[in-house]
Design a protein around this nucleic acid. Structure first.
Lengths: 146, 146
DNA sequence: CTGCCTGCAAATAATTTGCAAAGTA
DNA sequence: TACTTTGCAAATTATTTGCAGGCAG
């Protein structure tokens, strides 16, 4: 038997490697898109009819907690999840296609360089930040031209 | 009579300068805090019992549309609104105190310098971004020490 | 006076929770 | 076996909508 990477990741995090957790993780890892919980559920239900919506909510949160997924907030008040391709590589942000929801990685974040100056000018002690970038992915650009 | 700045702003935007719109705007302009719609409503209702919650929702959105308020998204799924102190001064972001909700301005945003490089490396055409910074405001820092 | 504003009541819609049954290690 | 995970049904909660009456310009 080969290295069951996903299973190990889950168990290391103290989660049991159940089929449903695997399904959700694998679906998003393969897809490369940010998906609403309901979308994930609709898709996976075709394979496994007994999958419950609350379960998908719970799993998505757990997988986000352990860094496997990223919460993507497009601004409608629907939380989406995407495979965090930069899982384990440290601080980074995501760029999301407004057309199709595909997600890219922004590996370097220049913001930390501004933090000192900002703390001085605002008086705030800065504890964290979140950058949301949107645009059009290469594929959707191609589609536009036609 | 003096310059009714707020009234003018509203009318210029094509909105009637009604007392309720003024109340919401003035409350947030004075407060300096990010407030959930329900908080705004609870506060203003003491003065004006007939104020409806849906009205506050509508007004907050309108005032955001015209740039007077800013939508603040703390990550719980409750939309908050704050006076946009940098109203009219162009692109900027906000820093929000996790303790009390007070809001500061981040006048300069270094992100545009990264856009070109990022478009090249990701292939995305970038159309916009949103930076959310959190921290502890000076007052809450003082309070912590005691 | 005319059309924009607003209150109220009710509808949505996403997400959460309780609990008993089922599955993993 | 012991503890985690999950399904289902129902509850929550923020936000939205429809519509009749009210108010600013």
């Amino acid at each position: 038997m080969e290295h069951d990477e996903l299973g190990e990741l889950l168990r290391e995090a103290g989660l049991k490697a159940t089929p449903k957790r695997r399904m959700v993780a694998e679906y998003l890892l393969d897809s490369g898109y940010a998906r609403a919980v309901e979308d994930i559920w609709c898709h996976l239900r075709k394979r496994l009819a007994t999958l419950g919506l609350p379960t998908v909510y719970r799993i998505a949160e757990e997988l986000t907690e352990i860094g496997l997924l990223a919460r993507i907030d497009v601004g409608d008040r629907v939380v989406r999840y995407a495979a965090c391709q930069a899982h384990g590589t440290g601080h980074h942000h995501h760029i999301v296609c407004t057309g199709c929801g595909s997600v890219g990685v922004i590996p370097k974040c220049g913001f930390h360089r501004q933090v000192d100056a900002l703390e001085r000018t605002t008086g705030f002690r800065i504890s964290g930040h979140r950058l949301h970038v949107e645009g059009t992915c290469p594929e959707c650009q191609r589609r536009e031209k036609s």
